[in-house]
């Protein structure tokens, strides 16, 4: 296999005044023309990693090489390889769509006919050509995000890094962003690194690194990681999860995980487990579901706690 296009080794970072380090020995390798996801709960270290990769922060320890170039020693060269899309839009609201891209081109030393042609091609490809004279403040959330991505591609970056690119977008706009990222990977062979806290988005990545509390918990292809976990997961919603868990555990000699009102099992033998549940526990649950392990199961398995804390789950509603 060829040399990874992005290599992170033993990255450490602590913010001044913080008790715990934000990153503890993060190591990653991203292959060319792949979509790599850094998945983790809020506060897990995603944004700090992103800031270091984008050259906004200098790592305190460890090494980051992008296209073989050291981020600390030659940040300017690294910046010319990188397309960066921030979570907060880096657009000028008072400028038009076209002006925003021209400005970005100038920041990367592109001008004249080359800039005009490239801008037109990019805007047409992303369906923003009709909006070229519109002030950015008048665009919808999805359009702004597309413009942001368009803008970051003006200098033909080798690697595009995006921090939570779909935050604040509706499901349709989210899909649109992901379809475009896949298009870039397939047709333009651009390597894409994306941070996300959305488990379903991580499924769209070729590889993921699951990070929690500033550490990489596991790394690999998402479906392979789930399959490696094996078996099926039964998730039971119950008003009395502790009692129900105790009853089932006594019966099957299983371990369970109680997460709020949910009790989760990974039974070895499903038929007798479901039989017992339906026959002997029917008054003790509201609903249950059976499925293959999800990335959240993987996360729970590896960290011993839930991906979303209770407060966040409540904010976001169920099914996140």
């Amino acid at each position: 296999m060829s040399e990874p296009i992005l290599k992170v080794k033993d990255l450490v970072y602590s913010y001044p005044g913080q008790k715990h380090p934000a990153l503890r020995n993060i190591s990653l390798e991203v292959n060319e023309a792949s979509i790599f996801g850094i998945l983790g709960p809020n506060g897990g270290g995603k944004s700090t990693t992103f800031k270091i990769l984008s050259t906004l922060l200098r790592p305190q320890q460890g090494e980051v090489r992008i296209c073989g170039v050291d981020v600390v020693r030659q940040p300017s060269q690294v910046r010319s390889f990188l397309g960066v899309v921030f979570q907060a839009p880096a657009l000028d609201k008072k400028l038009t769509v076209e002006e925003n891209i021209y400005h970005q081109g100038h920041l990367y030393g592109i001008r004249g006919a080359a800039l005009i042609q490239k801008t037109e091609a990019l805007l047409k490809r992303l369906g923003l050509w009709e909006k070229k004279d519109e002030k950015t403040e008048n665009l919808s959330g999805g359009q702004k995000r597309r413009l942001e991505i368009t803008k970051s591609l003006i200098h033909n970056p080798k690697i595009l890094i995006l921090d939570e690119p779909t935050t604040g977008l509706d499901p349709l706009a989210r899909r649109e962003v992901w379809n475009y990222l896949k298009f870039l990977r397939e047709k333009e062979k651009i390597t894409i690194l994306v941070t996300t806290h959305l488990l379903d988005e991580a499924e769209d990545c070729d590889e993921i690194a699951l990070i929690d509390k500033g550490q990489v918990v596991c790394c690999g292809n998402p479906s392979k990681l789930r399959n490696d976990l094996g078996g099926n997961v039964v998730n039971i919603k119950s008003p009395h999860p502790n009692e129900l868990s105790e009853k089932i555990c006594n019966q099957f000699n299983l371990s369970s995980r109680i997460l709020g009102k949910d009790v989760r099992f990974r039974p070895a033998e499903m038929t007798s487990f479901l039989g017992f549940l339906l026959r002997d526990c029917s008054l003790e649950y509201d609903s249950f579901s059976v499925g293959k392990p999800t990335l959240e199961d993987l996360f729970i398995e590896k960290t011993g706690h839930r991906f979303w804390d209770e407060a966040t789950s409540n904010d976001l509603g169920e099914g996140v």
Binding site: S54, T55, L56, S76, Q77, R79, S80, L82, V84, F86, A88, P89, A90, L91, D92, K93, Q104, L107, Y108, G109, K151
Partner: peptide, 13 residues
């Protein structure tokens, strides 16, 4: 505050 500056800071300017 609006995020524009970070786009300038990550460019090779």
């Amino acid at each position: 505050n609006e995020g524009f500056l970070q786009g300038v800071l990550v460019a090779p300017v």
